[in-house]
Amino acid sequence: MQTFLQIIANGLMLGGLFAIIAVGLTLIFGIVKVVNFAHGEFLMVGMYLTYLLTTGIGVHPYATAAAVVPILFVFGAVTQRLLIQPLMHARDEHIQIFATVGLSTALMNLALLIFGADIANTPNHGLRSQIHLGPVRILEGQLWIFLAAILLVTGLQLFLARTNTGRAIRATAQNRAAARLMGINDRFIYVLTFGIGAACVGFGSALIAPLYPTSPTIGTYFVLIAFVIVVLGGLGSIPGAFFGALIIGLVDALSGFYIGSDLREAVVFGIFLVILILKPSGLFGTRVSQSHVSP
């Protein structure tokens, strides 16, 4: 029982971490309708920034968010403006996939070139110390990540629901043509959304860096999991991404213990494929993408 509770706790903590990465991805996916294969590299960039700032000027890793979040926002906005925007009307949607794959490849290898293949350990300032919550033990940093994920998800949800800009973002996603007729500058909305999506992962990287060693390829693993979560939670659904992340976190932890730690990924991706093929709108997807009969 003790072990089981510990596994559940581990799964939930992992889920919180996944959520913080997946939220930005689902935002970009749902609003701009672009699959950002470079999202994992955004995380990697953010983690290196945190690493450099903590080791360079010795601040607490969480404090680096003040710099990492705006930098990543600009990074995302520029990506949209210079790379995705010119391809929004490409006849062939493969082109957009290749564009973000190209960005991902370039960033990952640039990191290799600069930092080498060795891992970089961000000073953890005691965030790796264990705390006891009833019968289970978790790392202090994990708890903060979990709480931050809840905060981020709630904040984004409120932003989208209550503010003029948030409503304009949702309107653009739901019906772009009509949004333009309301006087919404759709291009600006896309640039803004991409920026916010990247800023979210920037926020995440400041939290994740003290717990996970940074390496040029760290993004690849997380981005694939994040895609699983985004599809599971329903494209563009922020709460969907959160609960999807918790489910995948639990699946990961449980299958790691009961099936075998080397098969965890096979289980996660297996679930992903089943969802993708049988229920592409996701578990929490309200907006069923009508695969209408062509005229």
Partner: peptide, 11 residues
């Protein structure tokens, strides 16, 4: 990483 970087940029 150099070749990968070049690939990505070319792409």
């Amino acid at each position: 990483g150099l070749h990968g970087f070049v690939y990505g940029v070319v792409l």
